[in-house]
């Protein structure tokens, strides 16, 4: 029983594939249209993910850097340490000695050649401070307090640009989401029309099938499979378009990044995101077909 049911579905799947192949140009064109429609929001989303990963390297928790005066000694360092420990707004802090800072810069940034040519270390001792509160006003208050300490040369509010980037990312995500929503509706509409035309050409078959005992789900099935397959194919197309675009962008980006001796490259969607994209595309194709079948099938009643 279950085997027969499975066999029927497999059969319909092959039938739908055959139908797709029987009009290759038409099928290819509509798959391409839907794939391009998908690649826009998915592409923007991919770029946002890359930007997010990039900004994630700097951390998004509010953080300040306390730079001590150039000539500060161990005594000054200990004093600041005590002050930070006493302050309730401070979540945790870390001391970065000037030697350690130099090593980090030599390892990470494109300035290593410049740094190596220096005769002495120009960097100050510093503390990085994580705040308990994310409130900007508390921030500014704390900054003023710290700036007033005699051992401190300068307090830098690191999170300002991260915040801006985050705002930008949120904005980009909203745009991607809006595009997704709009183009999803468009894809459902395209599928609706494709299936409508198919139903019209299959009118005789549907009528005869109904007359000799076909259930509605039997008649619906090939159209739903067809919609789902086209949806999946357009999802794959979108994925390939993004892959191609990233490939081209990465070639340029690598050349640019090497000028700053950095390693920058854009990553494609993660496996989970890729699968989500394909599933979503499949579902949209299915949905368009489902709506189309529901609104047209009842019109074909045997007489």
């Amino acid at each position: 029983m279950i085997k027969a049911w499975f066999g029927q579905h497999l059969f319909v799947l092959f039938q739908s594939l055959k139908r797709l192949m029987s009009a290759p140009v038409t099928s290819l064109l509509s798959i391409l249209v839907m794939g391009i429609a998908f690649s826009l929001p998915a592409g923007i989303y991919t770029l946002m993910e890359n930007l997010h990963a990039f900004s994630g390297q700097t951390g998004t928790t509010p953080q300040m850097s306390l730079f001590l005066k150039q000539n500060s000694n161990q005594l000054d360092i200990d004093k600041v340490r005590q002050l930070l420990e006493a302050n309730e707004q401070v979540l945790r802090f870390e001391f970065v000695s000037k030697d350690k800072a130099l090593r980090q810069i030599q390892q990470n940034s494109g300035l290593s050649d410049v740094m190596r040519s220096m005769t002495h270390n120009p960097l100050p001792d510093a503390f990085t401070v994580d705040m308990r509160d994310t409130n900007v006003e508390v921030f500014d208050q704390l900054r003023e307090t710290m700036q007033a300490w005699p051992e401190v040369e300068y307090v830098q509010f690191d999170s300002a640009w991260t915040k801006r980037l985050n705002a930008l990312l949120t904005f980009g995500r909203v745009i991607a989401l809006l595009l997704f929503a709009l183009l999803s509706v468009a894809i459902v509409a395209v599928m609706f029309n494709t299936i409508r035309l198919q139903i019209l050409t299959k009118q005789d078959e549907i009528e005869v099938s109904k007359l000799i005992g076909a259930t509605d789900s039997f008649i619906r099935r090939p159209f739903l499979y067809f919609g789902a397959i086209q949806g999946l194919a357009s999802g794959v197309t979108a994925w390939l378009i993004i892959a191609l675009a990233l490939q081209m962008m990465n070639d340029e980006l690598r050349a640019l990044a090497s000028l700053y001796s950095m390693d920058l490259h854009l990553k494609h969607l993660s496996n989970a995101d890729s699968i989500s994209l394909l599933l979503f595309a499949t579902w949209l194709g299915w949905l368009g077909a489902r709506i189309s079948v529901a609104s047209h099938l009842w019109q074909i009643e045997p007489k």
């Binding site: 027969a4 029927q8 059969f11 005869v208 099938s209």
Partner: peptide, 23 residues
Amino acid sequence: KLLFDRNVFDNVLLPLQISGFDN
């Protein structure tokens, strides 16, 4: 009510497909 897009065999096959007969 024959279907003219398929051959004689497939026309007769249709009721069996609909009833889900073993292939």
